[in-house]
Structure formats: structure tokens, C-alpha cells
Design a protein around this nucleic acid. Sequence first.
RNA 1: GGAGGGGUAGCGAAGUUGGCCAAACGCGGCGGACUGUAAAUCCGCUCCUUCGGGUUCGGGAGUUCGAAUCUCUCCCCCUCCA
Length: 415
Amino acid sequence: MKKQEQLTHAQQKQLQEQLEVLTQGAAEIIPDDALAEKIAASLLEDRPLRVKLGLDPSAPDVHLGHTVVLQKLRQFQDFGHQVQLLIGDFTGRIGDPTGKSTARAPLSEEEVKANAATYTAQFGKVLDASKLAVFFNSSWLAKLQFEEVIQLAGQITVARLLERDDFDERTALGKPIALHEFFYPVMQGYDSVVLESDVELGGTDQHYNTLMGRHFQERLGREKQAVLLLPLLEGLDGQEKMSKSKKNYIGIDDAPADMFGKTMSIPDALMMKYWTLATDAGPDEVAAVEAGLADGSLHPRAAKAALAGRITTMYHGRDAAEQAEAQFNTVFQNHGRPNDIPEHLWEGDASVPLPQLLADTGMLASRTEARRMIENRGVRIDGETMPSPDTSVNLRDGMLLQVGRRRFLTLRLRE
RNA sequence: GGAGGGGUAGCGAAGUUGGCCAAACGCGGCGGACUGUAAAUCCGCUCCUUCGGGUUCGGGAGUUCGAAUCUCUCCCCCUCCA
């Protein structure tokens, strides 16, 4: 008999309540009723579910893409479940599964600890940090004997491993796959065994990996975890998924002005996805925005500004968000100046060729680049567009240099 | 063990009968116009320079008036056969 059918009426109600929240926005739940069964079990046995999230230990810069999963984890926490953060420190030091950088430099223990601390600090903006359980998979993987590793490897077939999209593609293209790469899924699966995870969360790109958890749990005689996958959030380019290496991300530690501005730069087509996945707006609110856009009562620009304000407020508070918006409007809408223009103390001659000035103050990388920029009419001094790179400038204290729309510098002269 | 393919600017990728190559093209990045924003679209720029020139095509050494293109050598990557 299914566990759901053993519940009392009160428990049934709780189950429905949890399911409604937890399944919202999910891209996939594997298998379909697995989550319901797990929750039912938790209610029957009166114990929290162990909910696993695996993390890459290398670049602990948490961005909005991560928060999609984190917000879901938070909901689990709010229902009293136990979140397990798994730092893949062992996995990370072995090498990269894309095959590009095969021998990644091992992270030292200090680095791992420092990164983990950064993670938990940043995650604290979304999760309840006091209730997090943090694990490092080196603490069990590093201890395995070779014989044990081989036995683990015996629990899965090569054909099964080759199903993984990435391997599949590379096989088709004739690209190499190193043997150790086969162990990634094995390790990730084994992690779930050790942690006795009830549920594993991830982005849809983790489909295969999370199934490995189920596979190894079954082979080793454990309860299989449920898998809950969330949609991936595209980055600022609107094409690829948000990631640090692609530099298309909004970091949750970004300054309010950046956070607001970056959000304003996403393609219109991506707005609703951000509303749904990256904000704390409920389904009704999201639907209202969508309807407004559809019938023309809500201007796309207004919708995006509201989105940017919402996101900025989540991480910096309302005041900072409003300031960021005001600043954004002055700089980009009214072509004005920001409030916090950096200053540069000039110690050279009082009269200097313009390209040299721009290069030496660090506003541009080289004089040649400065020349180009001037020729493109992208350089202004005190608001005046500079017509020719062959000008010399008589410097004055307080002079305002501007490159493009948003790079400003105030010049300070030594007395 | 054997055979073969390849290393070009941030990335991808042309160019390999030596000069017309500072090196096509695409992406990315930057600037400008326009606008509803750092959306979309269009245009321009994208090694350094004291504007004479200088330094680039995995590293080094050669051949030549002249090499990304030829030779030698070293390093690295990949594929296939066994």
C-alpha cells in the first residue's frame, strides 16, 4: 500500500500543503509521485526529509541561477526538512568532466574550507544557515580502497554511463573521454548513498547525475531518493545558462546598482522566466505581470524595472533598491552622472595628449584604444565630446572624464 | 607498438602552390545612433606605438630579398589500427 494512503486526514492535508509549494515551478520530479511518497513517509514516521544539493567547490560566487534551487531548498527548510549541502571537494580535485581541463589543480584544505565558508555565508541570504548540514565528499571518497572502488564500479554498466548526454555527444563527435570521467557519476551516486538522501535537488542539467544516486542507492540496498529538478535560468545574454565562467551572471553579492542594471539588460523575452524563477513573487503575482504585458496595460520597461527592483530588494533591501533605480534612471535614461564617481590623483604634466591621459588614468587599456574610442566619439570631457585624438588637454582640478555612457572619472591635481 | 590529424588574435574558425596577411568570417567585447533600459534594430571599432614604425600565428633554430605558409628540432593535444 502506498504511504500516502496510510495518512490520517490531518496528515493528508499537510501533505497537500507541502506538495503544492514544493512542486511549484519544478521542471521534473522523478518518478512522478516520488516526492509525495517521501513526504508521506516523513509525516508517518515524524522525521524530516534529508534533502541533498551537490555543489562545485571551485568558484563560490553565488548567482541568481543558484538561487532557483536555493529558494526551493528554503521551502523544504520551512517545512522542517533537513537540507544537506554537499561540497564536492573530492570530485573537484580529480578533474573536470567536460574533458577540457583534465588535471585541475587540487584545492588545498584551506581553500576548500574558505570556499565552503563563502558558500554558506552567501547561501544565508536565501537559506536558514543555522539549520544547514554541510558535508565534504572527500571525507568518505578519499578513504575508499581501490578494491572498494572497483566494487562500486561493478554496480554500473558502461552502456549506462554512455547514456549521459555529454558522453553521448563526445562519442558521436569522436572526442575523447578519459576513464576517470566515468567516475563522476559513480561518485555522485555514491554520495547519495552515504548521505542517505531522501530527495536530491538540482537543475535540469543534473538529470543524469541525480539518477545515479537512485541507481547506487538501489544497488546497495537503500531507499531510492526522489529527484526534483528545477529549470535552468539563462544568463544576461539570454542564451546560455547563467554561470560565472560565461560572465553572464547576476551575483547575489553584486552591488545594488549592478544588480539593478544587469537585470535591466536582460532581453525582454526572458523577463517572465526571471519573475518566476528568480524572485519571491507568488504564482498570482507573476500571472498578473504576464497578463499586464499581454494586454498592453503594463509597459515592458516598467515590468522590467519592477523586476530589477524586486530582485535588488531581495538581497539589499528596499532603500538600496530604490537608490539603485534612481541612479540607473539618471545615468541611462537621462544621460546624467552617477553619484559616486571615482577620483584619480594626477601627478603628471598639466598639459597632456588626450590618449595618454585616458591610458595613464587607467580609464582605457592603451593609448591606441583611447584613440579609437575618441574617433568613435565615445570620449567626453566635462560633457564635451572630444573631436580628435590629436588634442592636448590642459588639466584642471575637478575635471570630469567620461568614456562611453557609464565610465566616469574625476581628476584631482596635486597642489 | 603502428598509422595519421592538429596547435592561428578573448573564443570558434579560414588561411599552408612563400610576398597582395596585423591575418577572412562568426561569436564575444567596446563605442555611436535610435529607444522603452545596459531590450530589439542599425552603423562603426576590436595587437602596441613617440604614427616613422614595432612585435604577432605552440617554443626554439634555419632556408630566403621576404614565411602563419618551406626545413629541422622540442613541447603539447587528438583520432584510428593492433
